[in-house]
Amino acid sequence: MRAVAEMPTEIAARITVLFADIDDTLTNEGRLPAAAYDAVERLTEEGISVAPITGRPAGWCDMIARMWPVAGVVGENGAFYFAYDQAQRRMRRSFAIADVQRAADRERLAEVGTRILSEVHGAAISADQLYREADLAIDFCEDVPALPVSDVERIKRIFEEEGATAKVSSIHVNGWYGAYDKLTMTRRFAADILGVDIDSERDRIVFVGDSPNDAPMFGFFPNACGVANVLAFRGRIDAEPAYVAAREGGHGFVEVANRILDARSGKHAA
């Protein structure tokens, strides 16, 4: 991983789309710094399409798509995208799994959750579970005392033993039924809403993330960036970003945004 400041100017200047995780990528210790939100707005105003790609729930994503200066949002690790058309005052929603199947899957996941809570002391159902459409989020450090890595891995294994896909974020283990992830829904979102083929345009796209569930995105986008806290997952992540910021969370995200914006305006990296 090279420093974000070392991203070549010719690469940074041609970026037209920026995707970013939310928790511990745009946020610091659970809060969205004003500087990070400002960076999202500055990117958008510069004509760069910005979209959060997150594990957070549908309820949150509806608000983000409506109220943030973004082109849309991919939520629940790829279960759907939401994009709000300001002119028509209409939310466009696209799901990876049909409504009836999602309802059946939620019943199965409820049983998995009962097993996890009985076998992993200290784990909890995420406080935002009520607002989810497709997955089950197990909290291992957001609103509970941090669990050891061995317990986090145990939660992931239980999901997999029950036939579910499981991904570890910086705060939750998310489990779901269905063959999708952040990358598959990002591909659909980009085609439908942005008119972008990410397979042919990947060198013009930056993804910013921080944790193992971002690995599909890190591995796909050649100019992917990590905020500094991604370094804590070295050796436990399937693919690493090409670049890493000097600072953590939202402040690291601002570094990435500034590198792109400075390159487009002809400024040199600091």
Rank of each mutant, 00 (worst) to 15 (best):
Y84T: 01
E76I: 10
L117R: 11
G252E: 08
E6R: 15
E153D: 04
L183P: 11
G55W: 06
G178Y: 06
T186G: 07
D181P: 13
A269D: 06
M91P: 07
D143L: 14
R89K: 13
C225W: 06
D238K: 14
D139T: 06
K156Y: 03
G250T: 11
I138S: 00
A13M: 01
A110F: 11
R2V: 05
E29L: 08
G75D: 09
G30H: 08
Q101M: 14
R234N: 15
T114E: 15
E107T: 01
A71C: 12
G249V: 03
N229R: 09
D197E: 01
T25K: 05
K182V: 01
A166T: 11
E119F: 08
D143G: 09
D214N: 14
V112M: 04
L147I: 06
C141Y: 03
R56T: 03
I15C: 02
T16C: 11
V17S: 06
R132N: 01
N229H: 07
A20I: 09
V17T: 14
I11T: 13
I11L: 02
D23R: 10
F253R: 07
M67Q: 12
D192I: 11
R187H: 10
V254I: 02
V40P: 06
G122E: 14
L18R: 03
G175E: 06
A239G: 04
D135K: 02
S211I: 01
G219S: 09
N223K: 02
M185V: 11
K182D: 00
T44N: 09
V144I: 13
F189K: 10
R92W: 01
E10T: 12
E29A: 10
G30T: 07
A127H: 15
T16Y: 03
L109E: 11
D214R: 15
R115S: 13
R204L: 09
P222K: 08
H268Q: 15
A104P: 05
G47D: 09
A87Q: 04
E255N: 11
R202P: 12
A5C: 02
I198L: 13
I171S: 10
S200N: 06
N28R: 13
V254R: 01
H251P: 03
S49P: 03
A12F: 00
N28A: 09
V173E: 01
F221A: 05
M217H: 10
H268A: 15
A124W: 04
E76A: 13
N223Q: 08
Q88P: 00
D210S: 15
A58T: 12
G59H: 03
T9F: 04
K267F: 03
F95T: 13
D21P: 13
W60K: 02
A87L: 04
D192M: 12
P222W: 02
G175T: 10
N258Q: 14
P8A: 05
I48L: 10
